[in-house]
Design a protein around this nucleic acid. Structure first.
Lengths: 237, 237
DNA sequence: GCACAATCAAGAGCACTGCTCTTGCTTTGG
DNA sequence: CCAAAGCAAGAGCAGTGCTCTTGATTGTGC
């Protein structure tokens, strides 16, 4: 049968998917630290040693979950972008930021897996790099379109930063001026600073209406990278 | 003897300190996840059960380390502030930011303990709150002084954010205008976004000269909260 | 000064973890 | 059709957090 081997392979990927699903369930329920291979196997009605045929170690399972999480976040961000692709760049930017925030708030433990502190002992394998870049590339794309369209506001860079800025621009977006790329990378990191503080509870007893606060902060970031933000307003005094 | 009970108490705090020191050593070496009570006890030449007389659980030990880490970071930030207290507010701001960054880079695992994802299963006990606030209060103080001195630039707030802004200002800094407090809190979170990305490796293969990049980004944050940053330059185009 | 009470270290033990190795059974491909 | 590969299961090892019990040491009120 031509499906013979296919059946094996299919069964294999199905079991692997079931393992990941159950692991994700436990991750959402108890956090990465309490994710137990034995508990996953138990819940799936198999013995723990059988599970090692699908994932060679606990860390490899976690790595698979990390990649999936990056992809899921990337998809959420891209879906949000698709919905507002006709609007102004600043609105696109804010929409993507809000999508990241909402994704993170809905799955704090999965978010912690990718943007919290790196888990157990491991160092992120290079497999995760492409998936991890998706949100960043999306933000770059928004600014690139705006820049191609009618340009963006730019900051002057101090001389000491210019070589590094040129390096970054060459690697990430050769069609954008270094001045823009620098603030873009900064805004990228700062966006996740905002999300981190909210997800990890640092805003408890500090910010109450976190939704509008975040929308405003994301708008400020858009303005900072040079996108014209409606009602952002100039500084006074 | 008057030192009799004192001797007991002193011995107790000494042993507790030794436990924390050894735990910190293992934390720095292997990370929070691999910190083991038994290994700490082993290294200290005692049996694991004896350790439970000093810390009722592993999580309590970690909590103690968290508080110490917050305090250590707070001290580092305040020391950096003290060294530049005569200079401009923007320079003070940047100095404190850089102190935070350097502290974090020197002790990534301790940093992860407080600003990474919350560890194992716990929720941060309220004991940590005062220690956690030190860096934030320091930053607020810098802006407050600048404001009292000659005022700071302010953003206009959208109407929807104004109630929340007033709330935050009332709680955190009644003597500052809500417009300033809002951007201040945002900048606070964004600062740790920058540090997080660097410490946790998100800048690998993206930013090379991270020191000057960070200094510039911190300067931009200072400018954003309204402090006049030397050579920050206005936007073009 | 002494007995009582509190404090402490130590050991044994429980339930759990990640992981390995060996034993058999089923499926697959030549 | 038969050897080879894939797979589940079980036993077992070393390690973990934590509890309970047993003795010894220490500090304090009578």
């Amino acid at each position: 049968m031509s499906t013979a081997q296919g059946a094996r392979a299919r069964a294999r990927t199905e079991v692997a998917a079931a393992i990941k699903d159950e692991a994700r369930r436990q991750l959402a329920a108890e956090g990465a630290a309490k994710l137990s291979l034995r508990a996953v196997a138990r819940e799936l009605g198999m013995v723990s040693s059988a599970l090692y045929r699908y994932f060679p170690s606990r860390d490899e399972l976690l790595t698979a979950l990390i990649i999936d999480a990056y992809d899921s976040l990337g998809e959420a961000a891209e879906a949000a972008y698709a919905k507002v692709s006709g609007e102004s760049p600043a609105r696109q930017w804010v929409a993507v930021c809000e999508a990241v925030r909402e994704w993170a708030l809905a799955r704090p433990h999965e978010y912690a897996l990718i943007y919290g502190s790196p888990v157990p002992g491991y160092t992120a394998p290079s497999t995760t790099v492409p998936a991890a870049a998706r949100v960043g590339l999306l933000l770059i794309g928004i600014v690139r379109d705006a820049y191609r369209d009618k340009g963006v506001a730019q900051w002057k860079l101090p001389a000491e930063l210019q070589p590094e800025a040129r390096r970054m621009a060459e690697d990430l977006a050769p069609d954008l001026p270094p001045e823009v790329v620098v603030v873009l990378i900064g805004a990228w990191a700062q966006l996740f600073g905002l999300v981190n503080f909210e997800v990890f509870g640092q805003f408890n007893r500090v910010v109450e209406d976190r939704g509008t606060f975040f929308r405003h902060a994301a708008g400020q970031l858009a303005h900072h990278v040079g996108l014209v933000y409606p009602q952002s307003g100039a500084k006074e005094r």
